[in-house]
Design a protein around this nucleic acid. Structure first.
Lengths: 345, 345
DNA sequence: CTGTTAGCGCGTTCAC
DNA sequence: GTGAACGCGCTAACAG
């Protein structure tokens, strides 16, 4: 029972620190939690013992007593997507100064994995969560969130739970872009975006349709591709659109992964932007700037999303007890030379 | 002491499950840990009670007894860097089936944050770690790793600790590229890469110098910029090189962030690739493919790095007790049309 | 200011 | 096949 337990080398405990410092464990605990009621000299001796032994308090034992872990979980659909990574970065800047550690978990867009994460978070007594779900219609995930018992901030999703939410504006920027394209003379515009199962997908489609309706341009559902978010999908849909019988003269690739794939498809077809096809991307302003010609992009400040989400969470962690709050953050349209009047056919 | 402790709504405990199932806690524990010594009927009653209450075992209490948390920590310098995110993705695919949860923490290239992470990991009794340090010369970080007491896999760094390491090949691909450029007639080649404080920086500079020496081309240290990895730095260095008195005719931007910044600098200067300047990027094959002309890139399979690292870790977690192992993974040079003979001046 | 003590929730002996 | 009792390491409350 002594040496080789799982968990590797035994870590020094509060008892050993107490012994080497010649004090009781209560005193060590007081030093560890920075209680003022300790004589400076005693504190010094304890600190020395801690340093000598490389003591770190056992978080499990501490959590058992305090019901706090100083841990925030961040659930993201896809770690390799810069968009979510930036949110984490923003949240971190707000949470770290308050002593919270932010740990990110990637579900790879699997609701089952999302549930596993939420259960793991509950088991581990994480103090709060920031979550981005990959499917609003997955009821299991939502039930788990309801059970959490700690503050949860939801990012850009509409789900029936009592939680603060940070939204991004998706409708208006799409409308702006579509209006631009209509003005240039485009009548057939392809939209590729996320599925209807998540708010960004729905809102982008809604904004798209609204702009067309306002202009009295008939809606062709064949031109609207609201499915899975991935580069592969973006490429496939773009290829399909551009090689179809009555192809669009402009492509809106609304979503960063989709942007990559769509652009790749355009390249592979040997089409030139904007002469052969007008092109609008999203969520990766840098890529839009690095390619030639620079590409018009719908962009948003994801770092700010993270900051806002963390801010809402912190207030809850401090005990704020008010009804769920909603924050809406804007998006920018970065107009560049990838859109032009369509070729006359 | 009853209701409003930090940690939010009280979670059901094993006692409540036992009570509603009409059994003792021992039995519940046996069901939870899938012990066979439980009557099928009893098991069913317990399972029902668990579901009804939404019971999740308390990880802290469990960890206290078992010294296991089924948690792996992943320390990365920068979450928003796709390179590291892909490693996480790869590691996840091998760790998840074994029941481990992988949590990522981003240090933002701060050794102080790295130390905080390592301490947090020790406090939390994480079962194992995969770490990418931002500075091999930071002694505090290395001391903390030595203290961990659980298996640690180090990525692409040379540090004096007893740990398994997964390396990427950096020298050979740089040599290959430089040889290509020399053959095309380039004599002044600029190299921008990470600092000497991490292995990739050192090895790339070494490979660079070796190729020049082999060809008998004198080395101009002004052309070698081995500093911080960031887009800003990449942009600044590239600008400086290309606006200097005796500018290079080719740029090697070795590092994904540096790649972005360097390419941006080239764009801003209005230079055309490869006519005005030959250009080689790294670690973002997709970007290299999406821009025009497509850019030659030194690429590596980071998902495989993650898989290998997780594999090494798993073996240790299963008790494998052998001296530290080293795995070296290759890199590819994706030749594209961004390099050409230099203009005659 | 410091020592002592009672649990936190669970897994693991033991008896039954 | 099941229940009771102990202790993991720590914090908080109370004595001294």
């Amino acid at each position: 029972m002594s040496g080789k337990l799982p968990g590797g080398r035994r870590q020094p405990t509060i008892h050993e620190v107490a012994a080497t410092a010649g004090v009781s464990i209560g005193t060590v605990s007081r030093v560890a939690s920075e209680s003022p009621r300790v004589a400076p000299e005693t504190r010094a001796r304890v600190l020395a013992a801690m340093a000598e032994l490389g003591y770190q308090p056992n978080a499990a034992a501490r959590a058992m007593r305090t019901n706090q872990t100083m841990t925030i979980g961040f659930l993201i659909p896809d770690m390799t997507n810069q968009v979510f990574a930036r949110v984490a970065q923003g949240a971190e800047t707000v949470l770290a100064p308050e002593g919270y550690m932010l740990f990110a978990f990637s579900s790879n867009r699997s609701p089952a994995r999302e549930i596993e994460f939420l259960q793991a978070a509950r088991q581990r007594q994480m103090d709060g969560l920031i979550v981005t779900l990959s499917d609003e219609t997955a009821t299991g995930t939502i039930e788990e969130i309801a059970r959490m018992g700690v503050p949860v901030v939801v990012l850009d999703r509409e789900i029936p739970v009592e939680a603060d939410v940070v939204y991004s504006e998706h409708m208006q920027p799409i409308e702006t872009v579509v209006e631009q394209l209509l003005q240039l003379g485009h009548r057939r515009i392809g939209l590729i975006t996320a599925s209807h199962n998540i708010r960004p997908g729905r809102d982008r489609v809604a904004g798209f349709k609204r702009a067309l309706e306002k202009a009295g341009v008939p809606i062709d559902d064949w031109l609207i591709r609201a499915r899975t978010q991935s580069a592969e999908r973006g490429m496939a849909e773009t290829h399909d659109l551009l090689t179809g019988p009555n192809p669009p003269t402009a492509i809106l690739a609304a979503g960063s992964d989709i942007f990559y794939g769509a652009l790749k498809a355009v390249r592979l077809l040997g089409l030139s932007i904007p002469d052969d096809i007008s092109f609008v991307g999203a969520d990766d302003a840098l890529l839009g700037e690095l390619v030639y010609p620079p590409i018009t992009v719908i962009d948003r400040d994801m770092v700010e999303v993270g900051r806002q989400a963390a801010g809402l969470l912190l207030e809850r962690l401090k005990g704020l007890d008010v009804p769920p709050r909603r924050i809406m953050l804007g998006s920018d349209v970065l107009l560049r030379s990838s859109i032009a009047a369509p070729k006359i056919r």
